[in-house]
């Protein structure tokens, strides 16, 4: 019996028996096929080559993230693409080159097989394009109602080519760069939620940033730290920088790239673009003298064409982010207090 006989995931697909095996072979192995995954052992055995130039043992970076987005398909991407890009990006912004991913699937009984295949195909395509391999994984099926269709966990291993990019490197005077328009993902997902649905041409910016990061580091610019501005948005990434570095981040509202439609949707719902999630945008802090060269290089990459310098690192107020508003006054830009909810007031 093959999975082709089933239109939906049933509990037996998670039993560990023949049906599990056929699901793995027909759906996952078919899409992700590579020599490391193919033996379908309980573990993948990885070769990490010594540094080509120095011969030194390479340092590894290791990360994991879980993806529970609803809906699982949204304009511009899906949960699978998100799960691959998100983990690649978590490695990339630390200065590590992503090599291998694991992928674990928690499926709700009744998940349409076609949806699963579509997600898995999207993951395979994304991984291929980004030059990473999915080498191990797991599947579980839970009873209807115990999960929301499909949850994915990915872990990633990468090698550090240069120095690790950590916020402690940040010092006053550095420039702050964002790699493109902010809030696209947040608006694309949010405006398809029940109750606040609206029409926008905005699609998720979900993308693997490893190529852009490689280009950025290749310029030789002294990049101090980077962060992908996911949940909590650019405001959260900057607050984390400020807290870790013990500096102030001064940014200018008018310099922050935001699509018009994103601004419009934010006005309607009472949101701020700076708090909205991004899935293909990074915030970088770079030595001021290198900022222009870095920016020019970023703008030649398709994922960095709207990159902009949005502000500078300063000494006070220590640990805070200060926003110069569009009318010229300054205010503290906090972390969001919790879930973003539409406001009437």
């Amino acid at each position: 019996m093959t999975t082709g006989a089933y239109d939906n995931i049933i509990l037996s697909h998670g039993s560990g028996g023949a049906l599990t095996r056929s699901l793995i072979e027909d759906v996952f192995l078919k899409a992700f096929d590579n020599p490391l995954l193919r033996p379908l052992n309980d573990q993948a055995v990885l070769h990490i080559e010594p540094d080509a130039k120095t011969g030194a043992r390479q340092r590894l970076a290791f990360t994991t993230d879980s993806y529970v987005i609803s809906p699982i398909f949204f304009p511009g991407a899906d949960i699978g693409k998100l799960a691959v890009c998100g983990t690649i990006n978590d490695l990339a912004v630390g200065g590590a080159e992503a090599l291998y991913l694991s992928a674990s699937f928690i499926m709700e009984e009744g998940l349409p097989m076609a949806d699963l295949k579509r997600v898995v195909r999207s993951m395979a395509d994304t991984a291929l394009a980004a030059g990473v391999r999915i080498v191990t994984g797991d599947t579980k099926v839970v009873e209807r109602g115990k999960a929301d269709r499909l949850f994915i966990n990915t872990a990633g291993i990468g090698v550090l080519n240069g120095h690790a990019l950590i916020p402690e490197n940040i010092s006053p005077g550095d420039a702050i760069i964002v790699s493109g328009t902010i809030g696209d993902h947040g608006v694309a997902v949010m405006t398809h939620r029940h109750g606040i649905a609206m029409d926008t041409p905005v699609i998720s910016d979900c993308a693997a940033l490893n190529g852009l990061v490689n280009d950025m580091l290749a310029t030789g610019a002294n990049v101090k730290a980077m962060r992908d501005a996911t949940r909590g948005g650019v405001a959260t990434a900057l607050n984390e920088f400020a807290a870790s570095a013990g500096c102030a981040m001064l940014i200018c509202e008018d310099d922050i790239p935001v699509k018009n439609e994103v601004r419009g949707a934010c006005e309607l719902l009472g949101f701020e673009p700076l708090y909205l999630a991004n899935e293909g945008k990074l915030v970088a802090v770079v030595e001021n003298g290198h900022a222009k060269t870095l920016l020019e290089s970023m703008r030649t990459h398709p994922l960095g064409k709207d990159a902009a310098i949005i502000g500078f690192v300063s000494t006070a107020p220590k640990g805070k982010v200060l926003l110069e508003t569009t009318i010229g006054n300054k205010r503290i830009l906090d972390m969001p207090a919790g879930e973003l909810l539409p406001r009437i007031c």
Binding site: E272, T325, T326, I327, N329, K330, R331, C345
Partner: peptide
């Protein structure tokens, strides 16, 4: 009186100014 004015005053730094 209005919470939305309070919001405007805070969001644009008018209160502090």
């Amino acid at each position: 009186i209005c919470g939305t004015h309070t919001h405007t005053m805070a969001r644009y730094g008018i209160r502090a100014a």
